[in-house]
């Protein structure tokens, strides 16, 4: 430790002195391939244990986009599976219909589930909503992420229900979660900030879990790379329109300068949640008068959106 400042060709693992592949700036830890992989898997297991995300008898359905996060999620959950009692894993893929982007990721999802011999269902937007996202977004590209978000939410709920899921697992990572906390704070949306943690289903939809919520985007990239599972997949063509992109690069810069920023945001959220427990004016659960889904207004976001979609 004394000669930390002198650059060495290859820094060593703090656990075994093998060559380090990852350096955690917040804890100053160096880890080799084996210890890095073990650390990630143990942290995910701990998130699941401490938050009771998965319990014996669960059928966990993974929302597998075929992108990096959900690929890593599937690999890690499949690794942890044998240590859980009577838990079943399967996967669903929603095909939004985004030309030049989804073909590759869907192919990659198909290959992955085949390798793991996992049950897998695919549901295209066209089946559920009568058209592709590309078609719906003609002339309103700037709204892509909110339109897609509303449709995907519904699609995943339908998919989870059809699959008989008791939990729906998504690949949201630490960066995503920290961005959401930040965005909700910027919007002054306290109820959303507190409610966001998967409990928005109010008993009717399959509960959502985010086992990677404390694993950073960079750690996920390293994990995939170390497993030879890294693929240079295309970016979603609509991502350039998203406000989240600005928050993302701002937070990445902060995290780089001040390691731990993202975790601190998560801690703030946890504390606010604890303070607010039972004290926020809960809006009464209402039901959409068109489709019956739980919602906060007269008509749910989906039914409102549907009226504006060009077919």
């Amino acid at each position: 430790m004394a000669c930390d400042d002198v650059p060495v060709k290859t820094p060593r693992c703090d656990c075994c002195s093998g060559p380090a592949v990852f350096h955690d700036k917040k804890t100053a830890r160096h880890l080799c391939r084996e210890h890095f992989i073990a650390d990630i898997e143990e942290r995910v297991a701990e998130t699941i244990r401490s938050r009771h995300l998965i319990v014996p008898g669960d059928h966990v359905v993974i929302a597998l986009s075929g992108g990096k996060d959900s690929t890593a999620l599937l690999m890690i959950l499949a690794r942890l599976l044998p240590s859980w009692d009577s838990v079943r894993l399967s996967a669903v893929t929603i095909d939004e219909g985004i030309a030049g982007y989804r073909e590759d990721t869907i192919h990659s999802a198909d290959q992955l589930v085949a390798r793991y011999g996992m049950d897998h269902t695919s549901i295209p937007f066209t089946d559920l909503f009568g058209g592709t996202l590309d078609a719906f977004l003609k002339g309103r590209e700037a709204e892509a992420c909110s339109v897609c978000g509303i449709l995907r939410r519904k699609a995943l709920n339908v998919a989870a229900e059809r699959a008989g899921a008791t939990k729906l697992a998504t690949g949201h990572n630490l960066d995503d979660e920290a961005q959401s906390v930040f965005m909700n704070v910027l919007r002054g949306d306290l109820p959303r900030l507190v409610r966001d943690s998967g409990s928005d289903s109010k008993g009717r939809f399959t509960p959502r879990i985010k086992p990677l919520m404390f694993v950073s985007e960079k750690e996920i990239a390293v994990y995939l790379m170390l497993h030879g599972a890294w693929a240079d997949l295309p970016e979603c063509p609509y991502a350039v329109h998203a406000l989240r992109g600005e928050v993302r690069s701002m937070l990445a810069t902060l995290e780089s300068k001040h390691p731990g920023t993202m975790l601190h945001l998560m801690e703030s959220k946890t504390r606010i949640e604890a303070q607010c427990a039972g004290r926020l004016d809960e809006e009464p659960v209402r039901h959409c008068r068109e489709c019956g889904d739980p919602c906060s207004g007269e008509t749910c976001q989906l039914c409102t959106l549907k009226k504006t979609l060009s077919q």
Binding site: K9, T10, P11, V21, H23
Partner: peptide, 15 residues
């Protein structure tokens, strides 16, 4: 970014 040196991932403080 992540960085590979001669095909192996290395840390930011490697040379």
């Amino acid at each position: 970014v992540i960085v590979a040196r001669n095909g192996t991932l290395v840390t930011e403080d490697a040379v």
